[in-house]
Design a protein around this nucleic acid. Structure first.
Lengths: 135, 135
DNA sequence: TATTTGTATGCGAAAATTAGCATATAGAGA
DNA sequence: TCTCTATATGCTAATTTTCGCATACAAATA
């Protein structure tokens, strides 16, 4: 299969576009549990789609302890162009909502790192409030 | 399904990328028999994929007698961006070969219109030669 | 109206993809 | 070493997509 065909096949799935949406808009690496919480899908579901995107050459994961962070691979110029292209088109309500939830979830990071595991949406607000009170 | 997801699904097939490749590079409308001959696939195969691309909003067909010409819809700005993007990435050997064959096939046009039906690759050279001798 | 030709489509089989569940792996810490 | 937590994967069923064939449709021509 042609390389570009494989890339487009990787893009032809709503979950995978939702994952890329979060990585593109947040402009930072994200760990699996953050993605899982933001998209509210089973963790194995996220892991599998991440693997498909990785095979298509969109990113290389980095392990840090038990956490694995996914970064967009912007060293490749065709990837950069594709991500720029995507950024302007991931405008649907779903994509916006996902990113809003992710931004909340990222408030729980400490020193730029994820320090909690899976957090349900209802626990998220409580934790954020607790964190705010700590300071 | 999100609109952009549908567009990417439409792009996630080698035959459909090969069709778009021909329309993008030739920068002109193409009829079904020209596409069929250039890609050397069954006519029903081409028609079905054309239909999928049409539903994704990439073009609107125009009938002229029994012929149907497919044009890229460049009135839509997101389409234009997408086609520009694609042009630079449809560089595989298959895409180049397809376009070379199409260029040959287009030599049989008269007054910018397709006037023959299906032509096998071996008949193509003969017809081109006959045409050259006519003049 | 009958025929020819270019194009489109209905339908079942085959192939590819995705979802769901259970479970495995990897690393940190007790 | 045992446990806990974050992540990955094997397997099967379900869903979706594609293929292949036959045939239908549309327009031109006789």
């Amino acid at each position: 299969m042609d390389n570009i065909t494989e890339k487009f096949k990787a893009l032809a799935d709503e979950t995978r576009l939702r994952i890329l949406n979060l990585l593109i808009k947040s402009e930072r690496n994200l760990c699996v549990c953050e993605l899982t919480d933001a998209l509210k899908l089973p963790q194995y579901h996220i892991s599998k789609h991440l693997n498909i995107l990785r095979n298509a050459g969109f990113f290389i994961p980095e392990r840090e302890g038990t956490w694995v962070y996914y970064n967009l691979d912007t060293s490749d110029s065709s990837n950069r162009r594709l991500f720029d292209f995507l950024r302007d088109f991931l405008t649907g309500a779903q994509f916006i909502n996902d990113y809003e939830l992710l931004k909340q979830r990222l408030l729980l990071r400490e020193d730029g790192k994820c320090v909690v595991g899976f957090v349900s949406e209802e626990d998220l607000l409580k934790k954020i409030q607790m964190k705010a009170e700590e300071v």
